[in-house]
Simulated assay, not measured.
Amino acid sequence: MDHEKVSVPLVLGLYRIVVGFLFACHGAATLFGILGGPHGQAPAAGQWPGWWAAGIQLTGGLLVALGAGTRPAALICSGSMAYAYFVQHQPHALFPIENGGEPAAQFCWAFLLITALGPGRWSLTALLHNSAHPRLSAPRRREVSDLSSG
């Protein structure tokens, strides 16, 4: 068994879960004042862009963490962080360490990676697909003719 083939989907699945969970925590902190947040005043319902950004963080983060609609959710999360970086942070200084935009830049690239590579292991979509189509997910049984030819 090739360890690289086993470990990449496993690590990617864990990465997706952690990144999605952390992102959802940002949204929950901003919207509900829990987990030590929000930093500053909570945005009013529907306020642009704060309330909408927190909504994307919470729902997008949960979808990514669960592995439900992972690629589209991760793409929206990545785009929202690119917007946050270039509109809220980059005008203040060139580098993320100077303008406070490191979390936005890191989340942007993390979600772009998840968009490109997919959910890895333990996604809700794969679980639902496998339970709906058990023949497709079950390993193929070897036939007698297979055994004699190999």
Rank of each mutant, 00 (worst) to 15 (best):
M1F: 13
D2I: 08
D2V: 07
H3W: 08
H3A: 05
E4N: 14
K5T: 14
V6W: 04
V6F: 07
V8S: 06
V11W: 15
V11H: 11
L12A: 13
L12F: 12
L14R: 09
L14S: 11
I17Q: 00
I17E: 01
V18W: 13
V19N: 02
V19L: 09
V19Y: 06
G20F: 00
F21C: 03
F21D: 01
A24D: 12
C25Q: 13
C25H: 04
H26D: 11
A28S: 05
A28N: 03
A29I: 09
T30D: 07
T30F: 02
I34P: 02
I34M: 14
L35G: 01
G36R: 10
G37N: 10
H39C: 02
H39W: 09
G40C: 12
Q41W: 00
Q41A: 10
A44L: 14
A44R: 15
G46S: 07
G46C: 05
G46Y: 02
Q47R: 12
Q47K: 10
W48I: 15
W48T: 10
G50R: 13
W52M: 00
A53H: 03
G55C: 05
Q57Y: 07
L58T: 03
L58G: 05
G60W: 03
G60D: 07
G61L: 07
G61P: 01
V64T: 07
A65V: 11
G67P: 09
A68K: 06
G69N: 09
G69D: 07
G69Y: 09
T70W: 10
T70R: 03
R71H: 10
P72E: 15
A73M: 05
L75G: 10
S80M: 14
S80R: 01
M81W: 09
A84Q: 07
Q88F: 10
Q88L: 12
Q88Y: 08
Q90A: 07
P91T: 00
H92L: 04
A93N: 10
L94V: 11
I97Q: 02
I97A: 02
N99E: 00
G101D: 06
E102S: 05
P103A: 02
A104N: 08
A104C: 13
A105Q: 02
Q106S: 13
Q106N: 06
F107P: 00
F107R: 04
W109K: 00
A110S: 15
A110Q: 11
A110V: 05
F111M: 01
L113R: 01
I114K: 08
A116S: 11
G118L: 15
G118T: 14
G118E: 15
P119H: 11
P119D: 10
G120H: 02
G120F: 06
A126K: 15
A126P: 12
L127A: 11
H133W: 09
P134I: 02
R135S: 10
L136W: 06
R140C: 06
R140G: 04
R141Q: 14
R142P: 12
R142D: 12
E143I: 08
V144C: 08
S145H: 05
S145C: 05
L147S: 06
S148L: 08
S148R: 10
S149T: 14
S149R: 15
